[in-house]
Write a protein that binds this DNA or RNA. Structure first.
Lengths: 236, 236
DNA sequence: CGCTTAATTGAACATACTCAAAATTTGTGG
DNA sequence: CCACAAATTTTGAGTATGTTCAATTAAGCG
């Protein structure tokens, strides 16, 4: 067991920037903040399952989460990774559907649960907010369509290299500037790029042998980022 | 050469329903309609290319269009199919980016080009419209994420069966109730499901031999839809 | 420290791709 | 309407890439 949950501040005091809510006025933030739920999840816990209905909108105060779908054969496909400051569950909420993916916590996380009613109310009255939402969805859509190409047309090696760079961009690195700041199992990395665990391992150890990365347990250090980028993009 | 382009009516007289604009008032439709461009494209012509900047929002008065991305190896991946009544190019417009896909016409099509300024203006003033846009993007995103799973986890056979059903749902069938109302080349079908042309052909002729479909030139007749659905979903 | 889970390796196998060649279809102009 | 050229479809054979399954080693946890 680790540190106890800290208390999460109100939305007005929240230090996470750059999210949808940064354009809200103090009053609006107050309004949204009021009565919000605060949740602590330990690594491995599931926030919601595919098929559940959204109660509200999750906002990640701090943490890392994977959002994945189950294939018919039981294999998982990670469709999005979610980090500090990100929102979670907005797609289903906005289209009034049940969740189409499962959200599981990658490391201990603190989430706020904002009221669905309040959020949609704000959406109706604040055109800047809805504008932001539209932009966010558009970006997600672009990314998803890009993944679509990557998954069908790139080799395992390319996809793994790309995934490592994506993980760096998304979650950053430790103080050494090289070690990825997320811990994913080999299976999870495979689920992310759509390949089997064994193939993932082989691709990683090949990059390791070539000196582009270093593996130490579950830690992955990106040694030669430019070369990784080249591997990720270019065909043999 | 075929029929000459008919004149396209104003948005108020447009018979296409169910699109984003169905909630607009007559005045708003008038506003949007005013000064819109009207374009006719022949089969094979390209409406815009990946990298171009959106001038406005395309609305398909009548026609069929494929939206595809180019992989690094030059292979295409169809990311969306667009038909009568659908909008085209909204994702890029809404996120203020250049087009991330190329739009090419599958059969002679009539498109309206709505002013970007007018559209965004309406978006800011009409919360019902932005709500609709949000729902549409959410649905697109869900579909895209589903494709992601399908492409990585389903076999060629399953994907082909699914694609045929998708094509039926999207573009419908001829009067016989069986013949798909779109003509796609084998390569295009492959580009849609992310497999090579040859493999596409083999999968189709296998379904043909089993009596689930009938092939006649580029025409495809769906004979046993329930069985196709079973093929599309279930693993061996 | 012992146990459970995850990572790794090897080998056989399957699926889909590539390349080349043949057959068909489609488009065009007379 | 026909003939020809071009494009597309189809087929076969060999190959590559990644999967699966089983066995081994290493790591994480109480």
């Amino acid at each position: 067991m680790k540190k106890p949950p800290p208390s999460i501040p109100g939305c007005n005091e929240c230090t996470n920037r750059d999210n949808l809510f940064c354009t809200l006025s103090s009053e609006e933030k107050e309004f949204l903040s009021e009565g919000k739920g605060q949740n602590f999840f330990r690594k491995g816990q599931t926030i919601f399952y595919e098929g559940n209905h959204p109660h509200g909108l999750y906002c990640v105060y701090q943490g890392k989460i994977k959002l994945y779908k189950m294939g018919d054969n039981g294999k998982e496909q990670i469709v999005r990774l979610v980090g500090t400051g990100d929102l979670l569950g907005y797609r289903s909420l906005l289209s009034n559907e049940s969740y189409r993916a499962t959200a599981t916590v990658l490391e201990d996380s603190y989430l706020c649960l904002l009221s669905k009613r309040k959020f949609t109310e704000l959406l109706d009255t604040n055109s800047k907010l809805s504008r932001k939402v539209i932009e966010k969805l558009s970006q997600d859509l672009r990314r998803s369509e890009q993944s679509l190409i990557d998954l069908t047309q790139k080799t395992v090696r390319e996809r793994i290299a790309e995934a490592l760079l994506l993980l760096k961009a998304k979650f950053g690195v430790e103080e050494d500037g090289k070690t990825l700041a997320v811990i994913l199992s080999r299976r999870e990395i495979g689920d992310f790029v759509g390949i089997s665990t064994e193939t993932t391992i082989r691709a990683l150890s090949s990059l390791n042998k070539e000196g582009l990365i270093e593996l130490g347990g579950k830690q992955i250090r990106l040694i030669d980022v430019p070369q990784l980028a080249r591997v990720a993009n270019i065909y043999d």
